[in-house]
């Protein structure tokens, strides 16, 4: 009995001492910053930063001086926290969250199937190998959910009509779905960009209309409607919405989210997330006639001379709110006049 205790205890003691000695001898120094950064990172291991998981990124930031602003899911909080450890600049406070948007509305009620894709494994990647997929529109969302499978935040689902929809609140901006989609339909756009062309069809108008009832047919009515004119470097002018390759494209840098293009679009291919139609109104007592609002108005809806009270023409006003932001005297109010469906 005593022997047994002594021998087993002895083996345990010897092994323990040996391990204690070995752990000192083979001690690997880990930079304490790695662990600190690891604790800050969200731990989603989404790979948006381009490093293998959060651990790989923490190591790269602490030891190899990688860019500390790459964690998209963490947002500005994480960037600031990392910056406070590593030194250097924090996040840009004006940075806007980027969200994934599926640029297709051609669900099963708007498009048809050109063949019966009846196989064991249904993925967008395999379906797109056969004639570019079973959807009548070559450019459209196939709806087999490759993006759903790859999304680490469960932010995408295939709706009842067979099309991918992103829950923008859940989206962590990792852009994995953008890479996964074989049709390149998903695009990362700033969250405050509320008006979006939800179509990816580069077909000519007639072809696009035939294959999908909600497609962009490149008619150019949105371009005409757009109130924002931008001067190019070579002196020519363009609008904040342009037609490229038979597809309307909004420039989020210049778009004022007025929604005029969305209203004018004959096929409803442009979505406006802002459902409230607003009109600006000038409070005469507060207006000092500085003309700042009139100058900023994209549709010339504000009239008035210098040092006189200004007026908004409700017919012309598109409710973009630019004058509201510009007025330093709180003399402009935005009223909701209508709720769009």
């Amino acid at each position: 009995m005593i022997n047994a205790i002594l021998v087993l205890g002895g083996i345990g003691l010897v092994m323990g001492l040996f391990l204690a000695f070995a752990s000192k001898k083979f001690e690997v120094e880990i930079d304490p910053n790695v662990e600190k950064i690891m604790d800050i990172l969200p731990g989603a291991n989404c790979g948006a930063c381009g490093f293998p998981g959060c651990g790989g990124y923490a190591e790269a930031v602490a030891l190899e001086g990688a860019n500390p602003t790459l964690c998209a899911p963490g947002g500005s909080d994480v960037v600031n926290a990392i910056a406070s450890i590593m030194g250097g600049e924090g996040a840009d406070p004006n940075a806007v969250k980027q969200v994934a948007r599926v640029k297709c509305q051609g669900d099963n009620s708007k498009t048809t199937k050109i063949y019966d894709y009846d196989v064991e494994i249904k993925t967008c990647a395999t379906a797109s190998l056969y004639f570019g997929g079973d959807k009548s529109c070559w450019h459209g969302c196939l709806g087999y959910g490759d993006c759903v499978a790859v999304c680490p935040a469960d932010a995408i689902e295939i709706n009842a009509r067979g099309i991918a929809v992103v829950n923008e609140e859940k989206c962590i901006s990792c852009a994995k779905c953008v890479k996964e989609c074989p049709k390149n339909i998903i695009e990362m756009l700033p969250e405050n960009q509320k008006v979006t062309v939800l179509c990816n069809s580069k077909d000519k108008g007639a072809t696009a209309r035939k294959s999908c009832s909600i497609a962009c047919i490149a008619c150019g009515m949105c371009v005409k409607a757009c109130p924002v004119t931008i001067k190019n470097e070579d002196g020519t002018e363009r609008k904040a919405i342009t037609i490229e390759n038979n597809l309307a494209k909004i420039d989020p840098e210049h778009c004022i989210n007025c929604g005029l293009c969305s209203m004018k679009c004959p096929t409803n291919a442009i979505e406006n997330q802002i459902k409230e139609v607003k009109k600006a109104e000038i409070i005469e007592e507060k207006c000092i006639g500085c003309t700042a609002c009139a100058r900023v108005c994209p549709v010339d809806a504000i009239e008035g001379k210098v040092k006189e009270k200004h007026k908004v023409d409700p017919e012309k006003c598109i409710g973009c709110g630019l004058c509201y932001d510009k007025c330093k005297f709180d003399a402009i109010e935005m009223h909701v006049t209508e709720i769009r469906k």
Partner: peptide, 28 residues
Amino acid sequence: YGLGYLQTIAFILIIASLVQFVEMAVQK
């Protein structure tokens, strides 16, 4: 010492320690 009946537990102790040691050595 006639402790053959302790074989399993003693061996497991040794193997576990060895694996731990190998892990440390390889990491270093």
